[in-house]
Nucleic acid binder design. Structure first.
Length: 426
RNA sequence: GGGGAGAUACCAGAGCGGUCAAAUGGGACGGACUGUAAAUCCGUUGCUUCGGCUACGUAGGUUCGAAUCCUACUCUCCCCA
């Protein structure tokens, strides 16, 4: 039977800026047969974050090109710890945390792939084939094929020789390499993809497959993303940007993308959306002509939020952004229904207070837990930073129940971007 | 093992007996401008019942008064062996 991919995966990855390195021959294989390829995900937290979206996109493109994607969650590798890019030995996760993380990540991954049809995706856990694998068996069957010299030559190991590296992390590449071998023999998987920091680990896998006599095996890596200033991609002021709506609300997620710089947005829209090339190019051109409209950032934020959180969440995020940053007034705020209000401010920090009638603004800010001390409250008030229900207030402001939205809420704000909701219970 | 240098606010780094809640730079936060940007400019950056209070590695001591002097301890760095 003949196979024809929907499109040339390598070309697609290249123009999107998702291509860093490949092993020779993969392009030809991708164009002539349906390839099963995998990407591994570490269960280091109970949610993936935007940085993990890069390898996810690799799988998505693989599938869209007509190939079979496998997402591997690292139940076994997560117990060992990948030394790549790490300066120091990691602490091991306990089993309970690990299992919890695995389950969460698995659910998240399932959202991005199609599990039906001729290119149906699969999610696997490497713990399944490692749990019965004994140590002696492993060092005889796997360790014998790879030399220490070979393993020591990897950057991930070399960089740690000075500062120290446990045997556990040293052997990580063998464990990951064996994953590839296992998938290769059990599922005919010929391709492993990942960030460029995974190159060494992936190649250990292809080497192992070659020596143990599996079928041919290939690698493709994507460049590691950094911001223009060299800092790590995927962090906002408030920390990691997670894919879990509980940890990073769709609104904050949308805002993360909207706030990207012009240069960055040009890069990111290729990587994190599935918009076709002509449309992307047209958007970039339009944006350069009139950067002030931030059409590019808007579109990027919309597409990324849609991809990760879906239509409904996107609409709420848009509505919230409009209210928060548009020229909305206290009147408009008060006219919101309670459920709209709560939807829009979903994810905004909040606390409860019993009674606010006659409470001075300084006490309000500190007692609510919004600001840490009265000195800070006074400072910010003096700096003209504090608003109540979108209206700037000074130190003389005293709260009254007439200010409450829907008789229950007070919207506190420091600066333009920091909001806090006071839920008045009495 | 011997000798030397040091430990100050988020970070770097001045201060070396009172005028030090501590220069300066960076960061962070706020304001103006703008595109919810960048750059720029301005302000703020321990707590407080606004009387004060607690802070310069830790514990003591000298002094009217200590970040500053003395003692011990802990830690860091450098040189020699």
């Amino acid at each position: 039977m003949t196979f024809k991919p929907t499109y040339n995966l390598i070309d697609e990855l290249k123009w999107r800026g998702l291509f860093h390195q490949e092993t020779p021959g993969i392009e030809n294989v991708l164009n002539t047969e349906q390839v099963t390829g995998y990407v591994g995900f570490d269960p280091t937290a109970d949610s993936l974050h935007v940085g993990n979206l890069v390898p996810i996109m690799l799988l998505v493109h693989l599938q869209r090109a007509g190939h079979k994607p496998i997402a591997l969650v690292g139940g076994a590798t997560g117990m060992v710890g990948d030394p790549s890019g790490k300066k120091a030995e990691r602490t091991l996760l306990d089993l309970e945390t690990l299992n919890h993380n695995l389950a969460c990540i698995r659910t998240q991954l399932e959202r991005f792939l199609d599990f039906d049809g001729p290119a149906a995706a699969e999610v696997v856990n490497n713990y399944d084939w490692f749990k019965e694998f004994g140590f002696l068996e492993f060092i005889r069957d796997v360790g014998k094929h790879i030399t220490i010299n070979y393993m020591m030559a990897k950057d991930s190991v070399k960089n740690r020789i000075e500062s120290g590296l446990s045997f556990t992390e040293f052997s990580y590449q063998l464990v990951q390499g064996y994953d590839f071998y296992h998938l290769n023999t059990a599922k005919g998987c010929k391709l492993q993809m990942g960030g460029s920091d995974q190159w060494g680990n992936i190649v250990t896998g292809t080497e192992l497959i070659r020596r143990k006599g599996g079928s041919e095996a290939y690698a493709i890596t994507a460049p590691l993303l950094t911001k223009a200033d060299g800092s790590k991609f995927g962090k906002s002021e408030s920390g990691n940007v997670w894919l879990d709506a509980e940890k990073t609300s769709p609104y904050k997620f949308y805002q993360f993308w909207l706030n990207t710089s012009d240069d960055e947005a040009e890069k990111l829209i290729r990587i994190f959306t599935l918009l076709p090339q002509p449309e992307v190019m047209a958007l970039i051109e339009a944006h350069r002509a009139d950067p002030g409209r931030r059409e590019l950032q808007r579109r990027l934020a919309e597409e990324a939020t849609l991809l990760v959180h879906g239509q409904e969440a996107l609409e709420t995020a848009l509505a919230a952004s409009n209210i928060l940053f548009g020229k909305s007034t206290a009147e408009q705020l008060k006219s919101l229904s309670e459920s709209d209000f709560l939807d829009i401010f979903d994810g905004v920090d909040q606390s409860e207070m019993a009674n606010i009638e006659g409470v001075n603004i300084v006490d309000l800010l500190t007692d609510s837990g919004f600001l840490a001390s009265k000195s800070e409250a006074k400072r910010e008030l003096k700096g003209n930073a504090i608003s109540v229900n979108k209206t700037k207030v000074g130190e003389e402001y005293v709260a009254s129940s007439a200010d409450l939205i829907q008789g229950k809420y007070l919207l506190l704000q420091k600066g333009k971007k920091t909001y806090y909701i006071l839920n008045v219970t009495s």
